[in-house]
Amino acid sequence: MSTSANKKKLVIGNWKMNGSSAANAALLRGLLPVISSFERVEIALCPPYPYLATVADLLDDSDVVLGAQNLSTELSGAHTGEVSGSMLGDIGCRFVLVGHSERRALYGEDDACVAKKFATALQAGLIPVLCVGETLAQRQSGETQTVVTTQLHAVLKAVGIDELAKGVIAYEPVWAIGTGETATPEQAQAVHRHIRQWLADHDCVAADCRILYGGSVKADNAERLFNQPDIDGGLIGGASLDAMSFAAICEAAQAKPTI
């Protein structure tokens, strides 16, 4: 099953808890002139909450769009320290990550919580980027497809297939995030194909759904990953903090339009 020829690849940079006003401005000064001519790839950046507004201003004259790393399950009210989807939309966010493995593992976000965040993001007019993936132990036990399917099904149960299809799915094997380890292109493709087939089995126009790979994507492996038929781009962590590395990854996506 191949992906749609009518959609651009998508590359999202997740800065995680990194950056400063000066460092962010320097990064974008180096990055934006290089990627400004990339017309066949959509690019988004997800800085930490305190820098969303200033990064939005720096991106104002570019085609790069803004994303957030997380959102509250609640719409408003007495939730000190939380940030709502409507607030994110108000300052110009288009995307928001939900279910990142670090949120699941470090902050106890289970499948039900992730599903609620996905629904809340849609309600706020944002595009949720649903992160799914298995641990090393789960892969070694042959549970990869079961784990990913369970994570997907939680969102399906909460919102239905039509709403699920409005988001983006990011497969990020937990064992390959920030470790320097990367799934081989063939390993990544196998899971992406499973996800796309799962979508099709639930009456989704699966070819139109963008499925990204995340997990130590770097300039030297991006092209081989993006050349796989069911990989529609990447969710990039550490490499998104280096202008030239991230630009090279975006160029790899630009060079390999989805077919």
Rank of each mutant, 00 (worst) to 15 (best):
P185Y: 01
T73K: 13
Q189R: 03
T179P: 03
Q189I: 00
T184D: 05
M17G: 10
I249A: 11
G142A: 10
K256T: 11
S216P: 04
P229I: 01
N221Y: 05
L225T: 05
V217T: 13
L122I: 09
R29S: 14
D230G: 06
G85D: 02
I231S: 05
V114M: 06
G92W: 03
D111V: 00
A243Q: 11
G142N: 08
D203R: 12
A115W: 03
D201E: 15
L58P: 01
R224V: 04
T54M: 15
A222M: 02
H100S: 06
L212G: 08
S76T: 08
L156S: 00
F38E: 03
S245E: 15
L152R: 04
T146A: 14
Q151W: 02
K218Y: 08
A53D: 08
S37P: 01
I12C: 14
P47W: 04
S240V: 04
D60S: 15
A206G: 11
A22I: 07
H202E: 10
V191A: 07
T120W: 03
E134D: 12
I231V: 14
A26D: 15
I249G: 08
R40G: 13
T184R: 09
I12G: 12
H202W: 12
Q197D: 13
K16S: 10
L97G: 07
R193S: 13
E143L: 15
Y51R: 08
L136Y: 04
F95C: 05
Q145D: 14
G99A: 00
A207P: 07
K157L: 11
S141D: 15
K9V: 00
G92H: 05
G67D: 06
V83D: 12
Q228S: 11
L212P: 08
S84D: 11
V205L: 14
A165N: 13
A137R: 05
P47I: 03
I195V: 12
V191F: 08
Q197C: 11
S36L: 00
I236W: 04
